[in-house]
C-alpha cells in the first residue's frame, strides 16, 4: 500500500519545527508502524536526507520508549497498543496520516518525534518506590497480599511510562501515570509506611513539572497501551487528600525543603 505522511520535523530543541509531507510507497500490511517508518527512513537516507528520528527500543509493546500521535490519537487508532505493535493492516491504501510528537510543556521535543520524558523520572524519584532493607530476598509468602489487591496493583504496575496519557489529555495532565504509580504501591502492604508521603511528594512533583489537571474525561484511559483505568486517578486523589487531612505532610510546595533522604518515610 501507499500512504501520504505528514511528519513533524524539528532539528533540535531550539528549532521551531514544521510538518513535512512524505510518501510511503510499497508498504506491506504485515509491517508495524515503526517498520513502515524504517522503510521511509531508508529512502530518506538513500536520498541523502536526515531520517525521521523516533524513540523505540523493544518493539514488543512493553518498554514504553515508542509513541507519537497518529491522526491526533496517541499510539494511533487501535486501542491497548503502542505504535510498535500497531500493524499497517489497520490502514488503507492512500491514507493520509499526521504524525506528531507528544505535546506537553513537561515533554520538550528533542528532535522530530523524540521528546524528553525525564519529568516522569523525577516524579518516580520523588516517591515512586518503597524503602526497604536490602539483603537476601524475603520469602514470597512472608507478607500475605489479598488476591484482589495483588491483581489491582499488578494492573496499575503495568504502566510503561510511555506518556500517551499526557499526550492525549486535552489538559496535558499526568494524572493517569502518577495515579498508576501511587495506586500500584498504595495497594500493597509494602507500600503502606510511605503512602502519605509518596502521594504528596509525587503529586507535588507532577505539579512542579507543569502538567495540567484532570477533568475526568477519560481520554488517557482510552489511549493507554496498558489499559490502565481512571480508578487509579481516584486512588491518587484519595491518598493525597488523606495525607493532606492527617497533616503529616504539607500538601503543597516546599521551596525550603532539601531533597529527602530515601528512608524518611519510616520516620513517623
Amino acid at each position: 500500500m501507499n500512504l501520504i505522511l505528514h511528519v513533524w520535523r524539528q532539528k533540535n530543541a531550539k528549532d521551531p519545527g514544521r510538518m513535512v509531507r512524505y510518501e510511503a510507497r510499497n508498504i506491506s500490511a504485515h509491517m508495524s508502524f515503526l517498520e513502515m517508518l524504517d522503510v521511509v527512513n531508508e529512502e530518506l537516507i538513500a536520498r541523502g536526507e536526515e531520517p525521521i528520528a523516533f524513540d523505540h527500543d523493544c518493539r514488543e509493546g512493553i518498554c514504553g520508549m515508542c509513541g507519537f500521535m497518529i491522526n491526533g490519537v496517541a499510539h494511533g487508532p487501535e486501542r491497548g497498543t503502542t505504535v510498535c505493535q500497531l500493524h499497517m493492516r489497520h490502514f488503507k491504501d492512500g491514507d493520509e496520516l499526521y504524525i506528531e510528537p507528544w505535546r506537553s510543556r513537561a515533554f520538550p521535543v528533542i528532535k522530530d518525534l523524540v521528546v524528553d520524558r525525564s519529568a516522569f523520572d523525577r516524579i518516580i524519584a520523588a516517591g515512586g518506590y518503597i524503602s526497604v532493607r536490602t539483603g537476601s530476598a524475603p520469602d514470597a509468602n512472608a507478607i500475605p497480599v489479598p488476591k484482589e489487591n495483588a491483581e489491582l496493583a499488578m494492573d496499575a504496575a503495568a504502566c510503561i511510562a510511555c506518556g500517551a496519557c499526557v499526550a492525549q489529555c486535552p489538559n496535558g495532565s499526568a494524572a493517569l501515570f502518577t495515579g498508576a504509580k501511587i495506586a500500584h504501591l498504595g495497594l500493597l502492604p509494602q507500600g503502606q509506611p510511605e503512602r502519605d508521603r509518596r502521594a504528596v511528594a509525587m503529586v507535588v512533583q507532577m505539579t512542579k513539572e507543569g502538567f495540567g489537571h484532570c477533568t475526568n474525561i477519560g481520554e488517557c484511559e482510552a489511549v493507554c497501551p496498558k489499559e490502565i483505568k481512571l480508578d487509579v486517578i481516584a486512588r491518587m486523589h484519595r491518598d493525597y487528600l488523606h495525607a493532606a487531612w492527617t497533616g503529616r505532610q504539607k500538601p503543597g510546595f516546599r521551596e525550603d525543603q532539601p531533597a529527602e533522604e530515601p528512608m524518611a518515610g519510616n520516620r513517623r
Partner: peptide, 17 residues
C-alpha cells in the same frame, strides 16, 4: 492547563470524551 501545552497539535482527535 493552557500552560501545560504551549504548542498544540496540528491534528487532534477525541476518542471517548
Amino acid at each position: 492547563k493552557r500552560r501545560a501545552r504551549p504548542i498544540g497539535y496540528v491534528k487532534k482527535d477525541d476518542i471517548p470524551a
